[in-house]
Simulated scan of single mutants.
Amino acid sequence: MPTIRTDDGVTLYYEEAGSGIPMVFVHEYAGDHRSWEAQMRFFARRYRCITFSARGYPPSEVPADPEKYSQDRATDDIASIITGLNLGQAHVVGLSMGGFAALHMGLRHAGLCRSLVAAGVGYGAAPGKTAQFQAETDAAIARIHSETMAVFGQTYARGPTRLVFEEKDPRGYAEFKAQLCEHSTEGSALTMNGVQRRRPNLFDLREGFSKMTVPTLIVAGDEDDPTLEASLYLKRTIMSSALLVMPKCGHTMNLEDPDAFNRAVLDFVTQVDGGSWRNRIPASLAGGIIAASDP
C-alpha cells in the first residue's frame, strides 16, 4: 500500500496515475481519496496525478491525539506529499476543506505550487457567520460521537448545498453518501474539531492573500450559498486569481458536474503551464466605471 510519512510521524495513503507535470488532489471533509476518481481518470491522460486521504481518513492513519489535527497540519500534509514524492512544483486542486488547505499552501508553501485551485471554500467565513458555524460544528461533533459516521453520514450527506447533487445525479450521489458513511467516526470527529472548527477565518488573512502570487482559480457553485461571498472576496484580494461560478451547481462540484469542472481546471492549468496566466491589471481596480486611469 503506497504511503508517505509526514514530518510529525503520521502515515498518509495515496494513489497515483499518469505521468508528466504533477497534479495533487485534496478532498473535502465529506470525501476521501476516492472523491477524485473522475479527475484522476481525466487528468492522468496528460499529468502525473496524485490523490490521497487526509489524516483521520482510512486507509491513512487516524491519530488519537487531537493536537494532530489543524489547518496547519492539513496544509503541511500536502507539502509532505509533494516533497515525499519528489514532485518539485505541483498543481494543487482542493475542494472545500481541501480548498482551504490549498489556499494555505499559497501562503505557507508557495514554492511547492505551480498553481492552486480552491473550489467550494468559505463555510463559516462570511462576516457574522463565525458563531453560527462553530455552533453547528459543535453539534455535528456531538452527533458523530453519539451516532457514529455510519448514521450521521446519512444526515451530513443531505446538507442544503448537496441537494442539487442528489437531484441531478442520484446514482453518483448514492455512491458519495455510501463512501461518506464508511469514514472513521473518531477521525471524522477529530477533523471536524481540529481542522474545520478551529481554522482561521479567510477574511482575517487579507494581508497574506493580497501578497500571494501563485496562479489561483477560485470555483464556486451558484447554489453553494455559504461560499459565494468568500469567493468574491478571494477574487478581489488575490491578484493572481480568477473566479468561476458554475451554474445550477452545489458544493460537490467535481462530482456533480465533472466534465465542466475538469475542462475549466484543464484550461486554467494549460494557461499556467504555457506562461500566459497573468496577474490582475492594477488600473482595472482604480474605481472608474467608464475610463481607466492613465498607466
Rank of each mutant, 00 (worst) to 15 (best):
residue 6 T to R: 07
residue 11 T to M: 11
residue 11 T to Y: 11
residue 13 Y to G: 09
residue 15 E to C: 05
residue 15 E to R: 13
residue 15 E to A: 11
residue 18 G to W: 08
residue 22 P to V: 00
residue 25 F to K: 03
residue 25 F to P: 00
residue 31 G to E: 14
residue 32 D to E: 13
residue 34 R to I: 12
residue 34 R to E: 13
residue 34 R to K: 15
residue 35 S to T: 13
residue 36 W to A: 08
residue 36 W to I: 09
residue 36 W to E: 10
residue 38 A to R: 15
residue 38 A to E: 15
residue 39 Q to S: 15
residue 44 A to L: 06
residue 44 A to D: 12
residue 52 F to A: 09
residue 54 A to C: 13
residue 54 A to G: 12
residue 55 R to V: 06
residue 57 Y to S: 09
residue 58 P to C: 10
residue 58 P to V: 08
residue 59 P to R: 06
residue 65 D to A: 02
residue 66 P to H: 02
residue 66 P to V: 01
residue 70 S to V: 06
residue 70 S to E: 03
residue 71 Q to T: 09
residue 71 Q to V: 06
residue 73 R to K: 11
residue 73 R to V: 12
residue 73 R to A: 13
residue 74 A to I: 07
residue 74 A to S: 14
residue 74 A to H: 07
residue 75 T to S: 08
residue 76 D to S: 14
residue 77 D to P: 08
residue 78 I to A: 00
residue 79 A to S: 04
residue 79 A to M: 02
residue 79 A to T: 02
residue 80 S to F: 05
residue 80 S to W: 08
residue 81 I to E: 02
residue 83 T to K: 08
residue 85 L to Y: 01
residue 88 G to C: 06
residue 89 Q to V: 01
residue 91 H to S: 04
residue 96 S to Y: 06
residue 99 G to L: 04
residue 100 F to W: 15
residue 101 A to D: 05
residue 104 H to K: 12
residue 104 H to G: 10
residue 107 L to S: 01
residue 108 R to Y: 10
residue 109 H to V: 03
residue 110 A to W: 10
residue 111 G to S: 15
residue 112 L to W: 07
residue 114 R to T: 07
residue 116 L to V: 00
residue 116 L to A: 00
residue 116 L to C: 00
residue 118 A to T: 05
residue 121 V to L: 02
residue 121 V to G: 03
residue 122 G to K: 06
residue 125 A to C: 15
residue 127 P to H: 01
residue 128 G to K: 03
residue 129 K to V: 06
residue 131 A to V: 11
residue 132 Q to T: 14
residue 133 F to V: 03
residue 134 Q to G: 09
residue 134 Q to V: 14
